[in-house]
Amino acid sequence: MGRYKYDRFKGRFSDETIKAIISDLKGTADFNEEDYDWTLLDIRVKRANKAQRHRFADTIRKLEEYMNNNPENEFEFNEDGIFSNHLITVREFSKITGRNRKTVEDWMRKKLISYIDRGRSYYRLIDIEKAIEELKKNISHQQL
């Protein structure tokens, strides 16, 4: 079986809904409306990853707690030229949040959190405020 869990829903839908689905599918290659029985639809929907949402929420809580306890950190301009005073390394992010360093790097690779790359001789820096915004955005997208 696959890595993700899906739920299936069988049901009858209004003519308007069926027409909307058909018009959306017409843009795909090799689609012929006459090949299908439109009286009963079987819909498969990917189940939301609740554990991932909870990890994000826990990470956000720990980062906000850290910011409140450390109002001044390293002062620099981030990649957008915006002044930030909460820049931390991947190692510090991992220590603050309790997340494995590989998890943090995986989130960075998947663009769930952005970072500033200072080149080979420097560390990658994460802007805490921006990371919190991005994680909150990902929680809201997963709840849809």
Rank of each mutant, 00 (worst) to 15 (best):
Met1Glu: 04
Tyr4Thr: 12
Tyr4Gln: 12
Lys5Met: 07
Asp7His: 05
Asp7Asn: 09
Phe9Arg: 08
Phe9Asn: 01
Phe9Leu: 10
Gly11Trp: 12
Phe13Leu: 10
Phe13Gly: 01
Phe13His: 02
Phe13Thr: 04
Ser14Tyr: 02
Ser14Asp: 09
Asp15Pro: 07
Asp15Ser: 07
Thr17Asn: 06
Ile18Glu: 00
Lys19Gln: 11
Ala20Val: 08
Ile21Thr: 02
Ser23Val: 09
Asp24Met: 10
Asp24Gln: 11
Leu25Tyr: 12
Lys26Arg: 14
Lys26Ile: 04
Gly27Ser: 13
Gly27Glu: 11
Phe31Lys: 07
Phe31Met: 06
Glu33Ser: 07
Glu33Pro: 00
Asp37Gly: 04
Trp38His: 04
Trp38Leu: 01
Leu41Ser: 00
Leu41Phe: 01
Asp42His: 08
Asp42Thr: 10
Ile43Val: 15
Ile43Thr: 07
Lys46Leu: 15
Arg47Met: 09
Ala48Phe: 06
Ala48Asp: 07
Asn49Ile: 02
Asn49Phe: 10
Asn49Met: 05
Asn49Arg: 11
Ala51Thr: 11
Ala51Gln: 10
Ala51Phe: 12
Gln52Met: 14
Gln52Phe: 05
Arg55His: 08
Ala57Thr: 15
Thr59Glu: 02
Thr59Asp: 02
Arg61Tyr: 14
Lys62Asp: 01
Glu64Tyr: 05
Glu64Ile: 04
Tyr66Thr: 03
Tyr66Ile: 01
Met67Val: 11
Asn69Gly: 09
Asn69Phe: 02
Asn70Leu: 03
Asn73Ile: 01
Asn73Cys: 07
Glu74Phe: 11
Phe75Asn: 03
Glu76Ala: 11
Phe77His: 10
Phe77Glu: 13
Phe77Ser: 06
Asn78Gly: 09
Glu79Ser: 12
Gly81Pro: 08
Phe83Met: 12
Ser84Tyr: 05
Leu87Ile: 11
Leu87Gly: 06
Thr89Arg: 13
Arg91Leu: 04
Glu92Val: 11
Ser94Gln: 07
Lys95Leu: 06
Ile96His: 09
Gly98Ala: 13
Gly98Asp: 10
Arg99Lys: 14
Arg99Gly: 00
Arg99Pro: 00
Arg101Ala: 08
Lys102Cys: 01
Glu105Gly: 03
Glu105Lys: 15
Asp106Thr: 13
Asp106Leu: 06
Met108Thr: 04
Arg109Ser: 08
Arg109Gln: 13
Arg109Ala: 13
Lys110Gln: 12
Lys111Val: 12
Leu112Ala: 03
Ile116Tyr: 10
Asp117Met: 03
Arg118Ile: 01
Arg118Glu: 04
Arg118Asp: 01
Gly119Arg: 09
Arg120Thr: 09
Ser121Ile: 05
Tyr122His: 14
Tyr122Val: 00
Tyr123Gln: 09
Tyr123Ser: 11
Arg124Asp: 08
Arg124Ile: 08
Leu125Val: 05
Ile126Asp: 01
Asp127Val: 09
Asp127Ser: 11
Ile128Ser: 04
Ile128His: 05
Glu129Phe: 06
Lys130Pro: 00
Ala131Lys: 02
Ala131Gln: 03
Glu133Met: 11
Leu135Tyr: 03
Lys136Trp: 02
Lys137Thr: 13
Ile139Pro: 04
Gln142Asn: 15
Gln143Tyr: 12
Gln143Thr: 15
Leu144Ala: 10
